[in-house]
Design a binder for these strands. Structure first.
Length: 269
DNA sequence: AATGTCGGCAACCGCGGACAA
DNA sequence: CTTGTCCGCGGTTGCCGACAT
């Protein structure tokens, strides 16, 4: 039953690829393609490597049209917005950045972009976060770092909007990438919930999976920890007229960035 | 100059869904 | 329907060069 055994784990080489191995793999794929079977490929190509390793090497480094080097400001913005909208789905983000690999984007986010956006470790948490940002709990920005980053980034300066009643009140400048994308993610989700919820009060859909967990600092449990899935208490009770503005702007951003792919976001929530 | 620390990046690991037998 | 493998993904590790002490 089942398929033939995978590669011989004992006989395979691990670690960095040599130029000779790269050449062998490249030559074989150019001549024969992958054949839809990575497991059989290394043997056919004369490589003592696991099929998985070959696939990774090809996809991340050897295949044509791979971009290496610095990311542009436009790429930064796309990564940030998509990350805030869909979380750490690097393959989906990579699909929106031609020539970039998921591994590249993941490394770039973890080593540079995260620091560029959030700066030093803050004292005051930002009260809105998507599951994608939950991994950043140790590096959430203070209002001052938000403003600092905002002025340094010099991105789309627009009037700030005050977000009251969230423990610590302060202005969130829409021009800041991080803030915008947090609000974008929150309001996109909220608008989607509006469409699917008859009474507008249920947040169940936000806790269905780890990727759709949401919380607001304005809605905390008895232990003071943010509660998962309490988006509505903020959107319905506290945000008032600003709610629609947020939803409208976030829909525009998402539509502009993702185009026809935007409709596929439904599948994530 | 030697040693320690940090950051960037390539590669590996383990998991879950899809699919073949 | 069950079992076992393949594939793709995200998270993590470890190597190596740059920089600091």
């Amino acid at each position: 039953m089942g398929r033939a055994p995978c590669c011989d784990k004992g006989g395979v080489k691990k670690g960095p690829w040599s130029p000779e191995e790269d050449a062998k793999l490249k030559h074989f794929i150019h001549k024969h393609g992958t054949g839809g079977n990575w497991i059989a490929l290394p043997h056919k190509a004369g490589l003592r490597r696991c099929g998985k390793s070959c696939r990774l090497r090809w996809l991340n480094y050897l295949r044509p049209n791979i971009k290496h080097g610095d990311f542009s400001e436009a790429e930064d913005r796309i990564i940030c917005t998509l990350f805030a909208t869909i979380g750490s789905r690097w393959s989906v983000i990579a699909a929106n950045l031609p020539g970039r690999t998921d591994n590249d984007i993941k490394n770039y986010w973890n080593t540079k972009l995260k620091k560029k956006l959030f700066g030093i470790v803050p004292q005051t948490p930002l009260h809105i976060h998507h599951a994608g940002f939950s991994s950043l709990l140790q590096v959430q920005p203070t209002p001052s770092t938000l403003l600092h980053n905002c002025s340094n980034n010099n991105i789309n300066q627009t009037p700030a909007t005050s977000i009251p009643g969230l423990g610590t009140s302060y202005s969130l400048g829409f021009s800041n990438t991080t803030t915008t994308t947090c609000l974008t993610a929150a309001s996109v989700l909220q608008s989607r919930q509006n469409r699917s919820s008859s009474d507008g009060s249920s947040c169940n859909q936000f806790s269905r999976s780890k990727d759709s967990e949401f919380n607001y600092g304005g809605a905390r449990g008895g232990n003071g920890e943010p509660q998962i899935g309490n988006v509505d208490s903020y959107f319905y009770n506290e945000l008032g007229d600003e709610k629609q503005k947020l939803i409208d702007s976030s829909e525009d951003i998402a539509n502009g960035l993702l185009g026809s792919n935007y409709s596929t976001l439904d599948s994530f929530f």
